[in-house]
Amino acid sequence: MKVKQISIFLENKSGRLAQVTGVLGENGINIRALSIADTTDFGILRLIVNDPGKAYRVLKEAGFTVSATDVIAVEVPDEPGGLAKVLKSLDRAAINIEYLYAFVQKSSSAALVVFRVEQLDEAIKVLQESGTRLLSGDEVYAL
């Protein structure tokens, strides 16, 4: 139930994001979800892509500072309180969320939320026990 996320450290200058997406596009890698957090001098671009191993390799070869991290992708009912229910399950188990971001499937009544948590295996267990649907890496990469 773990999904590989690619994180790229980027200087906060014009054109750096275009360079990353250009390298990915030239190598046939499709972005499924992304998040960017920035400061004055740099940013962290987090990506879910259709081929994380290849993305990691081609970005490294292009000179980017890249890391791979395990995250979880959770299906959340697309209704008021849907996310709150999932978050309450993690809170009851005292699992801290480091960050999250969401993306939408093309035709579904659910949103997908990517979580980075401190206790990944415990979070997977808690979410499964609460009836929350977790997606496998293959399911997410194929969206």
Rank of each mutant, 00 (worst) to 15 (best):
K2G: 07
Q5R: 09
I6F: 14
S14F: 08
S14Q: 11
S14D: 02
G15V: 06
L17S: 08
T21M: 09
T21P: 02
T21H: 05
G25R: 14
G25P: 05
G28N: 14
N30I: 09
N30S: 15
R32Y: 00
A33E: 03
A33H: 04
S35T: 15
D38L: 00
D41T: 07
F42N: 06
F42C: 08
I44F: 15
V49K: 14
P52F: 05
A55M: 08
A55V: 01
R57K: 15
A62N: 12
T65M: 13
T65K: 15
S67D: 06
V76E: 03
E79F: 02
P80R: 09
P80K: 12
G81S: 06
K88G: 00
S89T: 07
L90D: 11
L90W: 10
R92G: 00
A93I: 07
N96M: 05
I97N: 14
E98T: 06
F103R: 05
F103G: 02
F103L: 01
S109V: 05
A110T: 05
L112N: 11
F115Q: 05
R116D: 05
Q119C: 00
Q119I: 00
L120H: 12
D121W: 02
I124W: 07
V126N: 12
V126A: 10
L127A: 05
S130Y: 06
T132V: 15
L135Y: 12
D138F: 01
D138I: 03
E139H: 06
